[in-house]
Amino acid sequence: MAKMIDFKKKLNSAKIERKTEPCELYSTLDRKSVAGPLRPAQEYILSQWYTNHRDDRDLVIKLHTGEGKTLIGLLLLQSMINSKKGPCLYICPNVYLTAQVCAEAEKFGIPYCEIGNDNQIPDEFVCGEKILITHAYKVFNGKSIFLE
């Protein structure tokens, strides 16, 4: 007689806790080999945010050019998604910087989505599964898809 496997029982017993602390989260990412450890300034900002400011509504992070603000922003948003505080939107000033941020997310193994040619908001964003990376014109214009 054939024996049935109860997959629900197996799946429920193996709950994986998602990392919410950004520095720990970074260590779990499937990043490309060229991406090394976090810089000390990045670690400091991420730990300060997580410890003291993660519930703040408005926050400004100021660093010099090339200090890793993009990665910090992506890690903060991924931390929020892992904490079930999504959906999360990363807004860039223009199309060029949007492509640059997408490349960074790809490089570090951070899941993201974009608005496609159909001009629809992706389900992965709405469900709080992935960061939506887009540019300001998609959000702030007279025909914004975010106003529907």
Rank of each mutant, 00 (worst) to 15 (best):
K69C: 00
T70P: 01
Y90Q: 11
R57T: 08
S79Q: 09
I81P: 00
K84R: 12
R57H: 10
G68Y: 08
C102F: 10
N94W: 10
N94E: 12
K85S: 15
M80V: 02
L74T: 02
P93H: 10
L89S: 06
N94L: 07
L59H: 09
A105T: 11
Y90M: 14
I61R: 05
V101R: 02
N82D: 08
A103M: 10
S83H: 07
T98Y: 05
A99H: 11
L76F: 02
V60C: 05
G73K: 08
P93A: 02
C88H: 11
T98P: 01
K84E: 15
V60D: 02
I72Y: 03
L74K: 01
I91V: 15
P93G: 07
Y96I: 13
L75T: 04
I72E: 06
I91K: 06
G68I: 01
C102A: 03
G68P: 06
L74N: 05
D56R: 14
N82S: 04
A105P: 05
G66N: 13
I72S: 15
L63R: 02
P87Y: 10
C102Y: 07
Y90L: 13
E67M: 04
L63V: 06
T65R: 11
S79N: 09
I91T: 05
C92P: 04
V101Y: 03
Y96G: 09
A99S: 11
K69Q: 02
